[in-house]
Simulated scan of single mutants.
Amino acid sequence: MTQIILNAWYRGAWWLSLFYPLEWVYLRLRKLHLRRQPNPSENPIPLLVVGNITLGGTGKTPLVVALVAALKQRGLRPAIISRGYGGRIGAGPHCVTAKDKPEQVGDEPTLLAQLTRVPVVVGWDRKAGLTWLAEQGQYDLVISDDGLQHSAIKGDLEWCLIDGARGLGNGHCLPAGPLREPSTRLHQVDQVLITGELQPQVKQQLKQLLGAQDDCLLEPQLDQLKRVADDQVAAWPSVDTPLNAIAAIGHPQRFFNDLRAKGYSVAGQGFADHHQFKPQDLPHGELIMTAKDAVKCKPMAQEQNLPWLYATQRLTLPESLVTKLIQQLDLTAKR
């Protein structure tokens, strides 16, 4: 059902017009909520919010991973805050450890902690997490994984990601469309980033909204193949080998298309984002999944010695983007 609705939002199904009255109610309630919120206080440490205004995946995780790596290369000390969606931490703050399970802290924070090797603090009270990190006195800046709609904090800088294939969908807000907030929000962020190949209709949509501007295009690429059970690198199979694949991410079809772009014939099964897998969901034979799915499926793969694999992603950020960020936040690269 979730995938049917997502497809309708991004393809512009006619029957979504039935939800226009509910969209109006949603926007009114949102406006009332924002009016009741106090103005966010000054951040105790420089804060970059990386988010989106649409439902469905836009590639935040590979961007955050690549940005942390680029900042560390320049001698800076970043940390991450996240809501911990799908976990049970509550308000937090809780700093993710190697002993934490994805069902406790969320699948994305678990993956971010593993890939970045920097502190990842979870809890729906992001302000508390930000304050806790500032009190440690060890970090130069904090990256909020998602949070453009979190009114309790305001990023010193805000980056908004847009899927280059799907854009803003039909341009309507929930429940008539995929937007969490009106598209005019893009005028308020500091940087719009487009992930994946930019389709002509999306380029035209953004041009009408934002006018002529240089598109910052980011194209994550599938990189290594690893075993789910022990994270050891495995060889990619011959392109003649049909692949069974699963993905419980915001945009499963993107993962399947990435595999097809490598020449594979793919039988893909998509699940809702953050889906908690049960044994009956997954075949016991060969299977390829995303890294985000692997952190949840690892115990099953280990217990049953299953030959499951997962694909990592690689993203290279433009040097100019990282340099601009450092300058805007008034940070000084250590080397």
Rank of each mutant, 00 (worst) to 15 (best):
100 D>Y: 03
97 T>R: 15
126 R>K: 05
114 Q>Y: 03
35 R>M: 15
139 Y>R: 12
131 T>M: 11
150 H>D: 04
66 A>N: 03
46 P>W: 11
117 R>T: 00
174 L>S: 03
107 D>S: 09
99 K>Q: 15
167 G>P: 00
67 L>D: 03
67 L>V: 14
99 K>T: 15
137 G>C: 03
151 S>T: 13
39 N>H: 14
148 L>N: 07
139 Y>K: 11
173 C>Y: 04
101 K>P: 07
165 A>M: 09
142 V>W: 07
36 R>K: 14
82 S>A: 09
90 G>Q: 01
68 V>L: 02
147 G>H: 10
135 E>M: 00
45 I>P: 14
94 H>I: 14
168 L>C: 04
56 G>I: 01
37 Q>S: 11
35 R>Q: 14
75 G>R: 13
133 L>K: 09
100 D>M: 03
50 V>C: 05
118 V>T: 06
128 A>T: 02
64 V>I: 15
78 P>A: 06
104 Q>L: 13
158 E>Y: 01
146 D>P: 04
59 G>P: 09
52 N>F: 02
152 A>G: 12
131 T>S: 11
144 S>K: 08
116 T>H: 02
136 Q>I: 09
72 K>M: 12
135 E>L: 01
158 E>C: 10
88 R>Q: 15
60 K>S: 07
97 T>Y: 12
97 T>L: 09
142 V>D: 00
174 L>F: 09
79 A>H: 09
141 L>M: 06
55 L>Y: 09
56 G>Q: 12
43 N>I: 00
50 V>K: 00
159 W>E: 03
45 I>E: 12
154 K>N: 10
38 P>T: 05
128 A>Y: 00
89 I>K: 10
162 I>M: 08
175 P>A: 00
121 V>H: 12
40 P>E: 09
73 Q>N: 15
123 G>P: 04
118 V>H: 11
65 V>P: 06
93 P>K: 12
175 P>E: 04
63 L>M: 03
107 D>C: 06
148 L>H: 06
130 L>T: 00
65 V>Y: 10
138 Q>K: 15
84 G>L: 08
138 Q>C: 12
52 N>M: 06
165 A>L: 11
120 V>E: 01
60 K>T: 08
75 G>A: 12
69 A>W: 09
141 L>E: 01
127 K>C: 06
44 P>V: 04
161 L>Y: 06
78 P>V: 12
121 V>N: 12
155 G>H: 04
154 K>I: 07
166 R>L: 15
116 T>P: 03
38 P>F: 05
141 L>R: 00
170 N>A: 02
130 L>V: 02
101 K>F: 10
69 A>T: 01
35 R>D: 07
86 G>N: 13
68 V>R: 02
173 C>W: 03
166 R>V: 08
